[in-house]
Design a protein around this nucleic acid. Structure first.
Lengths: 123, 123
DNA sequence: TTAACTGCAAATCTTTTGCACAATC
DNA sequence: GATTGTGCAAAAGATTTGCAGTTAA
């Protein structure tokens, strides 16, 4: 594991929210000033495959990445794309049952219209 | 609603699986020979916003689109990206409860390693 | 006539990749 | 010394957008 890879994992471990590849790249540059974006992408891919981090496609624009401790369930506004943590009770148990315990990870995105957008849309 | 928009919706309504923008474009060309890819993307975006179709990011490579009747739950191989339909019982009820009935739609992707890949990875 | 929609092509944005060099075992 | 990983820059893919022309209320 290179120092670049360690740094990327560390950035995600210490983030309470998901980050895009470019955000990770920018944070990484503060430590290793010449780290390249290609290296960030390469390591993110490896870390996802090793199941050390998760890749999320919340609204499809671009992928974001998160550590395994953070929320797995998101409530996303269909209008503005803002995302909120959601905690679905027992979902782990439900998925274990449905997949006969063979699942590794999951992404759950639930769409709604947030209050701000509801107001705007009424106008 | 333009004939282009109707056609795109029609293609998805009559598909038993999800399709990428380019696949939809190719099918659309068989009917409207000069329809453009830009128009396909523009209309897909509108149809998603109107909640007539769903956008999925199954493995993050590119987005795919599906009608509302098809499966909402997918089992995706983390290694090869192959996707299978999954049917989680009562998920609608669980999400209703968790979001106080304010949800419009959801995407659930569960990751695993398919049998083919398990064999390959053992080698 | 005017507002909404289209085809086309260029632009943008995200992600991947080839290559020469550096780090690590 | 061989393998693996890196920085850089170019390439590839997906998606968006500006614009002039069409369509249709």
């Amino acid at each position: 594991m290179s120092k670049q890879s360690k740094l990327i994992l560390d950035i995600l471990e210490n983030s309470s929210t998901y980050l895009s590849a470019i955000e990770i790249f920018q944070k990484a540059r503060e430590v290793i000033s010449n780290i390249s974006l290609g290296t960030v992408y390469r390591n993110l891919k490896v870390l996802v495959l090793k199941n050390k981090i998760r890749k999320l496609s919340l609204n499809g624009d671009k992928d974001v990445f998160a550590n395994l401790k953070n929320s797995h369930d998101y409530l996303v506004c269909k209008n503005c794309g803002k995302a909120f943590d959601l905690h679905i009770k027992n979902i782990h148990k439900v998925l274990s049952k449905a997949t006969k315990k063979q699942f590794i990870d999951y992404n759950l995105t639930v769409f709604f219209i947030c209050d701000d957008c509801k107001k705007k849309l009424v106008k």
